[in-house]
Amino acid sequence: MSEPRDDDEDDAELFRSAIGPVRPMRETAPPPSAPRPRPRARMAERDEAQAREQFRHALEDSLLEAGDALSYRRDEVSPRLLQKLKRGEISVQEELDLHGADTREAEQLVRAFLHDARQHGVGCVRIVHGKGLHGAATIASGGQPVLKNLVDRMLRHRADVLAFHSAPPAQGGTGAVLVLLAPRRLRS
C-alpha cells in the first residue's frame, strides 16, 4: 500500500477552504421500492383449468350421433307420459323446421318458437332439426349433428320443457323431436 502523497492532502485542504463551512444534509427516506406482486393462488388456478378441461371433455363425450334418440323427462313427468310422447300419441300442435339454419339462427328460432308456443297455450310441439348426415357444420364438428346437439342442450335447460323425445319414424324419427311444454301459468 502506498502512502498518501502530500499533493493529495494539499488538494483536499484547498477544496475544503474553497467551499467553506459544510453542513450535513438531512436524511431523506429512500425511494419506494416496486410494489410486490399480489399473491396468486396457482394451485386453485390449475385446479380450475383442469375442471374446465374435464367439463369440456365430458361435453364432447356426451354429444349425440346422427342415429341417437333424444330423450328427457323431468321428475314430475310420469314415465307413462314419456312413453306416449315417444310413440307419437300426443297431438303435435305446432312445428318448427330448422333445416338450413346455422347455430346462431337456430338458437334464436327455437327460443322464439317455444316462447310463442307457451304464450298461446300450446302443449306439444315438434322441432325438426335434421339427422345431421349432410352439411358443412356436421363435417366441421367432427361428424356430430350440430343442430341436433344444440336442440338437445337447449331443451334440457329450459324451465318450460317438461319432457322431450325423438319423434316416431312416421313423424321424422331421429331428425325431429317432440316437446311437451308446461302449461302457462296465469298471473293473478
Rank of each mutant, 00 (worst) to 15 (best):
A29M: 10
L98A: 05
K131E: 09
I127G: 00
R36N: 10
R16A: 15
P31V: 08
K84Q: 15
G67V: 10
F55S: 12
G88V: 02
V122D: 05
S141M: 05
D116E: 14
V128D: 01
V110A: 07
R80V: 13
P32N: 07
R46A: 11
E95W: 03
R23A: 10
V151S: 00
H120D: 14
H120E: 14
L96C: 01
G142L: 01
R80P: 01
E76W: 05
L96V: 00
I90A: 04
D152F: 05
D102G: 09
V77M: 02
K84M: 14
D116V: 08
S91A: 14
H134G: 02
V22D: 08
L81R: 12
E60M: 08
A137L: 10
A112D: 13
Q50W: 12
P37V: 07
Q144P: 00
Q83W: 10
S62K: 11
K86A: 10
R26S: 11
R26V: 11
P30M: 12
A44D: 07
D68N: 09
L64G: 01
R104S: 12
L133Y: 15
R23S: 10
G135P: 00
A58W: 09
V146E: 06
L114Y: 00
A34S: 11
R74P: 03
K131P: 01
R111Y: 02
I19P: 00
G88F: 01
E107F: 05
S33D: 11
E94R: 13
A117I: 01
V22W: 09
L70W: 00
Q119A: 11
D75G: 11
H129R: 06
I19N: 08
L150Q: 02
L63T: 08
G130I: 02
L114C: 02
E65H: 10
S71W: 00
G123P: 00
S91V: 11
R38M: 12
H115E: 11
K86E: 12
P24S: 11
G130N: 00
A101P: 01
A41I: 06
P31N: 09
D116Y: 06
S17E: 13
G121W: 05
A137C: 06
S71Q: 06
R36C: 09
C124P: 03
E65D: 10
